[in-house]
Amino acid sequence: MTTPVIELRGATKRFPATGSGTHTAVRDLTLTVAPGEFVAVVGPTGCGKSTTLSLVSGLEAASSGDVLVRGEPVRRIPSGVGYMFQSDAVLPWRSVLDNVAAGPRYRGVGKREARSRAHAWVERVGLGGFAGYYPHQLSGGMRKRVALAQTLVNEPEILLMDEPFSALDVQTRALMQDELLRLWAGTGAAVVFVTHDLEEAIALADTVVVMTASPATVKATFPVPLERPRDVEEVRLTPEFLEIYREVWDSLRTEVAKAREEASRVG
């Protein structure tokens, strides 16, 4: 069997609560991700999906249980991990090209080589004519392309994505989903993609993981046996997609209802 590139074994994360005590964000998480696998994580708002990414990335340490990357316990940010946040991480005082070149430069790559790699990725994301532009001169979709190039220029083995397209309009979001699949294909990178959008999860992923209402744990895992390459708009219209959607939603909607009831009670 293939050794998982990511493995969580009974991982729990607690934070200090307001006033006193602790808040459990996730509990007893058990999850594996194989090399090259695209895993989408869905669950109710505030259930701990982003915390899961923080544990894998080393930005947060587990309170108990094990978090492993390539079979090694995560003690710090592992090498070969790219993280794409919901908010753009572009630097406003740098051009598109220099934003993309920044990652390789921080990793010790010479200026000429870093700019060469950055130029190739700026071209790949369709921004070749905008290399000298600054973030304030770009549309939201173009900024997301810069963020993708920033992440992929470092050739990550693991790509963590926290609702990266949620702020985009519907049309631009669909374009970026297709762009992500095109750029990811053939890289061999494992992807963990957090989203509130079940359609997005199924259209992109090999596997959809449903998490419970807070504190989150893995409720169910669903394979997505849709052929690749995929056109996200076309695949949504197929009977196979609708069948998978109904199956996953049957599991997810119970947790969404629990989360709403808890929010109403606390409110």
Rank of each mutant, 00 (worst) to 15 (best):
T3D: 15
T3K: 13
P4S: 10
L8Y: 01
L8G: 00
L8K: 06
A11Q: 07
T12N: 11
T12C: 12
T18R: 13
G21F: 12
V26P: 02
T30D: 14
T32F: 04
T32N: 08
T45A: 15
T45E: 12
C47F: 01
G48H: 02
G48R: 04
K49L: 11
S54I: 05
L55W: 02
L55I: 07
S57N: 09
S57A: 15
E60L: 06
E60F: 01
S64R: 14
V69W: 01
V74R: 01
V74T: 05
I77A: 13
G80R: 02
G80W: 00
D88P: 10
L91Y: 15
W93Q: 08
R94G: 04
V96M: 00
V100N: 03
V100P: 00
A101R: 02
A101E: 06
V109P: 13
K111G: 11
A114S: 11
S116R: 15
A118Y: 03
H119R: 14
A120H: 08
V125M: 09
G126D: 08
G126R: 08
G129M: 07
F130C: 12
P135V: 12
R143M: 11
Q150F: 13
T151V: 12
V153F: 01
E157L: 12
L159V: 15
M161E: 05
F165M: 07
A167E: 10
T172E: 06
R173A: 02
Q177W: 05
D178M: 08
E179C: 11
L183S: 05
A185S: 15
G188T: 07
F193E: 01
V194S: 09
D197K: 00
E200A: 03
A201L: 01
A216V: 02
V218M: 05
V224F: 08
V224N: 06
P225H: 09
E227D: 15
E240T: 03
F241H: 09
F241P: 06
L252P: 00
R253K: 08
E255M: 04
K258S: 06
K258A: 12
A259G: 10
R260V: 11
A263C: 07
A263F: 11
V266A: 11
V266T: 13
G267T: 11
